[in-house]
């Protein structure tokens, strides 16, 4: 298994008040993304576990683009990957921050 840990400083905090959310499932070509609002307001940490080796640079590019676009400050993001394509990863990350924008029930 490949394990990748990335850290970012963001422009500001992610919107919303939800404490945590999970989107997606671990299946072939899919992934699950767990988001937790536990870090300082301008920090974001992303940890990826994937059985697919050799795509570190692609992961870094996709996640950096996501962080630049959404400024997910405060988020600890954990990913269990089932071999998802980069576009699927980007969509799931976006779905995750949108889910975190909703209030906790």
């Amino acid at each position: 298994m490949e394990n990748l840990k990335l850290r970012f400083t963001t422009r500001g905090p992610a919107p919303g008040t939800a404490c945590s959310a999970i989107v997606g499932v671990v299946a072939s070509g899919n992934l699950e993304v767990l988001l937790e609002r536990v870090l300082a307001q301008n920090e974001c940490a992303v940890e990826i576990t994937t059985p697919v080796r050799g795509y570190d640079e692609v992961w870094k590019a996709v996640v950096a683009d996501f962080v630049e676009r959404t400024s997910p400050g405060g988020m600890r993001i954990s990913i269990n990957d089932g071999g998802a394509r980069p576009d699927t990863v980007a969509l799931r990350l976006m779905q995750g921050v949108r889910t975190m924008e909703m209030d906790d029930e």
């Binding site: 298994m1 999970i22 671990v26 269990n80």
Partner: peptide, 24 residues
């Protein structure tokens, strides 16, 4: 035991298979 508790399978990694935060 929600996903944030990370109660995952301790065995799947040895088969090079991804785990899930809720073990499904």
């Amino acid at each position: 035991v929600p996903p944030s508790e990370r109660a995952q399978s301790p065995h799947l990694a040895s088969f090079d298979l991804p785990a899930a935060f809720d073990d499904g």
